[in-house]
Nucleic acid binder design. Structure first.
Lengths: 122, 122
DNA sequence: TATAAATTGCAATAATGTTGCAATAAATAT
DNA sequence: ATATTTATTGCAACATTATTGCAATTTATA
């Protein structure tokens, strides 16, 4: 097996994951094979090339996800308060307007509550 | 002049401010009259009693704002990438839907870009 | 006035992220 | 194949933001 670079391994992990992952979770999932700093640097590079996306939930928790969003769709991130899962959704864009002189460059719609599996358990 | 408690002073400051403030900005605006920890504790209490709201912008910057949101309106926070201002807006709720089994408890719609005054300068 | 409760500050700790530098590994040129 | 350059990684140190325990002070209540 070819010993892959941190960046590739981190990307694969995020890509395969159906939920958002924190830097710590990523490091642990990789059996602490890489230094903390290496993980951070990989995440920075992956974000720069738009391979992954950083999501900050209403509680301020930072997670990294993969999602191939089309430019015209608005991304919603659902953060489960119980298990911490972050699940991405896409909805149609232009769901609201601000006064014309506000130039919108980025949007982040984060919703938190209970995900289906946590709801079932309760 | 009556020497007010940190909590009241912090609330007045946030209440009067038209933009979001960080814990550091709050402390400095109060001439470092209070300890850092005291500011944090005031902010926690004010959030607990729903007097203020914590907003985390897409860059992860934490700001505190006052806004009397009606339960049926969705709050949008516009974060200027240039000056860092956070300006709250209200829009009608129910602008999107998720699958039924996702229980939505909180929403955070944060938009970033350029505010009118920064746009004018450019 | 005495006692209880709340507020505040200080020091220490924690979590998360960044930077500089040296060591190593990989890629490219000679 | 070897030398040179470039990229990757780890370590230590630092930075920022937030939390906790404890003692001191202030305020409220008995």
């Amino acid at each position: 097996m070819i010993p892959l670079r941190a960046k590739s391994v981190v990307f694969e992990l995020i890509h395969k994951s159906s939920v958002g992952l924190s830097s710590l979770e990523i490091r642990e999932a990789l059996n602490n094979r890489f230094n903390r700093v290496t993980i951070y640097r990989s995440l920075v590079k992956l974000q720069e090339e738009n391979s992954i996306q950083k999501v900050i939930n209403p509680q301020g928790i930072v997670k990294y996800i993969y999602c191939n969003c089309t430019s015209d769709a608005l991304q919603i991130h659902f953060c489960c308060k119980n298990c911490g899962r972050i699940v991405p959704f896409q909805i149609e864009n232009h769901i609201f307007t601000l006064p014309e002189d506000y130039i919108i460059e980025e949007m982040n719609l984060t919703v938190s509550g209970k995900c289906p599996s946590c709801e079932k358990e309760a």
